Amino acid sequence: MKNSKKFAALALSTAMTVSMAASVSAAVESKDDLPGATIGVQLGTTGDLDASEYESEGSTVERYSKGSEAVQALKAGQIDCVIIDSQPAQKFVENNDDLKILDDPFVEEEYAICVKKGNTDLLDKMNGALKELKDEGVIDDIMANYIGDEIGEHPYESPEDVDRSNGTLVMATNAEFEPYEYHDGDDIVGIDADIAQAICDKLGYELQIEDMEFDSILAAVNSGKADFGAAGMTVTDDRKENVDFTDTYANASQVIIVKK
């Protein structure tokens, strides 16, 4: 009889735990539900910065080195939601049918390339190359090759007659951010990698891509370890105090991922 009571108590406890887990996953249904929630973010991103503002409202922010780690924590019921950039979020949801993106964006943002503060020579050259690539439709084609209904139909190819006599430009990135930068075998590919290659083709440089933690990119650029950073990086006032940004090359948004 005692064993039966223990079993019944255990079953009740398990049921309550499952019920609580289910309620946690359903707790965040809009941006208004973030106060008091446990929020997963990728360390050093704008999602991290913006989510931090909710800590004063009782939220807990769990920071992960990769967006995929935050998503796995959400699936395991360890957090209530993930705040991350919209395009990577779409990839995560495509590959996980138990997740969804809330309809309303968390915050709108602009992506640009960062260079060492005061390096106006490189900044002006990159802005000039970006303008040419936009006017020629190359940026639109690169975007369309990774996002939308024409994925894979517009691969970027360097012109055959490129003169690379100006040397090498080193790009700092975090290759955990599909479709902007991610690993394809031994290569780092994606929107930012292609745009960087197209810029280097315009300016006569070889491109070298260095993969690192996202929150190390600004330091790498300022120390000279890298010439520029491109990683779906949002232009913010705080970052502008440490680096200079090129003109915007993409508009995006932070979104909220939750369990269905």
Rank of each mutant, 00 (worst) to 15 (best):
K125D: 11
I84F: 02
E69A: 11
K100H: 03
G77N: 03
I101E: 08
G118L: 03
G118Q: 10
A76S: 14
I83K: 15
F92C: 06
A73D: 15
E109G: 11
E109I: 14
D121W: 01
L122H: 00
F106W: 08
L74S: 13
C114I: 12
P88I: 01
T120R: 13
A76F: 00
N96I: 01
V107Y: 11
V82F: 04
I113D: 00
C114S: 15
A76E: 14
D98V: 11
K125M: 09
T120G: 03
D98A: 05
V107L: 10
A73Y: 05
Q87K: 10
M126E: 00
D98E: 15
D104P: 12
L102Q: 13
F92V: 08
C81T: 08
A129H: 04
K125R: 11
K91C: 08
P105H: 05
S68F: 01
Q90A: 15
E110D: 15
G118H: 04
P88Y: 01
E110A: 11
V93E: 01
A89R: 11
G118Y: 03
V107M: 13
A76D: 15
I84S: 05
E108V: 12
L74D: 06
V71D: 09
D103Y: 10
A76W: 00
D103T: 11
A112I: 05
L99S: 04
D121H: 10
A73M: 04
A73E: 13
N127T: 14
F92I: 08
V71C: 06
G77M: 03
E108C: 07
D103P: 12
V71G: 06
D98P: 08
N96A: 14
